[in-house]
C-alpha cells in the first residue's frame, strides 16, 4: 500500500506506508539516476586503464636462444642492448639474463663501456660487471635489477614490467636467478 488512509495506518505501517506516490516516484527516479551515474563512473577507471602496453612494460622478444648464445660466444660475452625494452641481455655463469639498464643509483641509462669491458654509468660513475652486473665501484647501492625472462619454443621473451623486477640486495650472482639456462 503506497498511500496511507489515516493516521493509524501510518503508525502501523512504518516507513513504507508513510511514502506518498510522488515521493516514491521521486526516489525511484533519483535512485535510477544515481545507479546510472554510478555505473558510468564505475567503468571510467577500467576504461582509462591501458591493457595493451607499448614501450616499457611490454613483453619484448629478444631473439632465438641459439642465436644469442652464438653471439655471446663470438663476441666474448658482449652484452646485447635492446633500446626499446631498455635492457641488456647478459651472460652470467650458466644463464642468460636481462638487466634493466636504469642505474639503481639515480636512474640514468647505463651504457656498456667497451674500453673498460664493463658497464660504466656516465652520471656518477657507478661500475657494473660485464657478466653479472654486480657493482664493481661507484655509488650504486646494489647490482642492476633484472627483468623476468622466459624461453618459449627456442625464443627468448623478456617481460619489461618495471613493477616485477628481480632486485638483488647482496652484491653477487645467485644461481637461483637463472630463469633461462645457457645449455
Amino acid at each position: 500500500m503506497i498511500r496511507p488512509h489515516d493516521e493509524t495506518s501510518i503508525q502501523a505501517g512504518g516507513m513504507i506506508a508513510r511514502l506518498k506516490r510522488r515521493q516514491l516516484l521521486r526516489m525511484g527516479f533519483l535512485g535510477g539516476t544515481v545507479l546510472a551515474v554510478g555505473e558510468i563512473a564505475g567503468v571510467f577507471l577500467p576504461f582509462f586503464h591501458v591493457n595493451k602496453i607499448v614501450g616499457l612494460g611490454a613483453k619484448v622478444p629478444a631473439g632465438k636462444k641459439a642465436d644469442v648464445l652464438a653471439g655471446f660466444k663470438s663476441t666474448n660475452d658482449h652484452p646485447v642492448l635492446f633500446v626499446e625494452g631498455k635492457f641488456f641481455l647478459i651472460h652470467p655463469p650458466g644463464a642468460i639474463a636481462a638487466a634493466y639498464r636504469k642505474c639503481v643509483h639515480l636512474g640514468c641509462a647505463v651504457p656498456f663501456n667497451d674500453a673498460e669491458d664493463r658497464f660504466h654509468c656516465p652520471c656518477h660513475g657507478s661500475l657494473y660487471d660485464k657478466h653479472t652486473v654486480v657493482v664493481l665501484g661507484g655509488p650504486a647501492p646494489r647490482p642492476l635489477d633484472l627483468f623476468n625472462i622466459e624461453e618459449s619454443g627456442g625464443n627468448l621473451v623478456v617481460d619489461t614490467n618495471p613493477l616485477k623486477l628481480l632486485v638483488r640486495s647482496d652484491n653477487k650472482w645467485d644461481p637461483a636467478l637463472a630463469q633461462v639456462k645457457d645449455a
Binding site: F48, V50, I53, V54, G55, L56, G57, N161, P162
Partner: peptide
Amino acid sequence: GGFELGPN
C-alpha cells in the same frame, strides 16, 4: 597510461 612517459 603506462610505466613511463610515452605516447599514451
